[in-house]
């Protein structure tokens, strides 16, 4: 298993390089540059700035310079935030995004799985219909509608919670963003769990177990729970990535200084190095998450392990 993990990580390096190359070409191909505004700079000044940031060099040269830096762990200076390096910007944003993402993910898992199991076991009852209906709403209402609505109710009208991340401290300021971020995932996970459980409960081995006289609780506990989780596990990787990248909107609405918000602003500002730095971060994360999911899958399903 260790060897498998090692090979997978090794295989990820060319993928990452390819991602960097494509992203590098794309940001440089986008019209405009990091220092363009409606106040056009005098030519002398423009030259001074381009020289200072090596923007006067050819694209291949800039690329080699960049890759050289990345290999040494240097993502370069941010073109927009001139006092900060890209590593510092990302470094300050990762803990925030991770905290909110992880909390939202855990909330989505607990609530989603519980609701899904209840709905699956009480198939076609009023309870099931209610859960399914709420899940449908959770999937269909976009975050950019739901999040401001929560701010209006809980921050502006009731004044229970802060309207922004910076406006509060501790648990207060995390509550609304975490719920907003978790909501669509709760809905997905609940539906997935429900469908999977119903499927498993209709399978031959469950019927055999029932024929042997086992109660529903024992069947669920010892025979149905693990296989029910299988489709869920393969969804967890993408779900976690979605929670982290999906935080773009939530971070924007609540003014959270996370990675997603910097990705959007840096793309708008043509902050080449910051866009690339965040792209590398996201790509590395997706690669790692997929690896973790595959390993977890092997752990859950003995048939995969033996292969």
């Amino acid at each position: 298993m260790l060897r498998y993990a090692f090979l997978r990580i090794l295989g990820a390096i060319p993928t990452l390089l390819l991602v960097i190359a494509i992203a590098f070409l794309m940001v440089h191909a986008a019209p405009g540059g990091p220092f363009d505004s409606e106040r056009q700079l005098p030519p002398d000044i423009e030259e001074n700035i381009e020289r200072a940031y090596h923007l006067d060099e050819s694209i291949p040269r800039q690329f080699i310079r960049y890759i050289n830096g990345v290999v040494r762990g240097d993502l370069g200076p941010s073109y927009r935030y001139r006092e900060f390096s890209v590593s510092e910007v990302i470094g300050s944003a990762i803990p925030v995004t991770m905290t909110i993402g992880l909390l939202a993910f855990l909330l989505a898992l607990t609530v989603g799985i519980s609701a899904g199991l209840v709905a699956g076991l009480r198939k076609n009852t009023v309870l099931d219909r209610m859960i399914t209906a709420v899940a449908m709403i959770g999937i269909s209402v976009p975050v950019f509608v739901f999040a401001p609505l929560m701010i209006l109710v809980f921050a502006v009208t009731l004044k229970w919670l802060p309207a922004s991340f910076a406006g509060g401290s501790g648990v207060d300021r995390l509550l609304l963003p975490v719920v907003a971020l978790a909501l669509p995932q709760i809905a997905y996970i609940a539906r997935l769990t429900r469908a999977s459980l119903i499927d498993v409960m209709n399978s031959d081995y469950v019927r055999t177990a029932r024929a042997q006289g086992l109660g529903t609780a024992s069947i669920v506990r010892y025979h149905a729970l693990k296989p029910t989780m299988l489709p869920l596990v393969s969804y967890l990787g993408p779900a976690f990535a979605a929670v982290l990248t999906g935080s773009v909107v939530v971070e924007h609405v609540f003014g959270i200084p996370g990675v997603g918000r910097f990705l959007v602003t840096s793309a708008m500002n043509r902050d080449y190095t910051l866009v690339l730095g965040i792209t590398i971060f996201y790509a590395a994360m997706v690669i790692v998450l997929n690896l973790v999911v595959d390993l977890f899958y092997a752990f859950l399903d003995p048939r995969i392990r033996s292969r």
């Binding site: 502006v156 802060p162 309207a163 922004s164 910076a166 406006g167 924007h252 003014g255 602003t265």
Partner: peptide, 16 residues
């Protein structure tokens, strides 16, 4: 930092 006018207004209305 308040790049979004609507979010900024909400923060103002919430007393922040």
């Amino acid at each position: 930092v308040s790049p979004e006018p609507m979010s900024e207004l909400n923060r103002y209305l919430a007393g922040e």
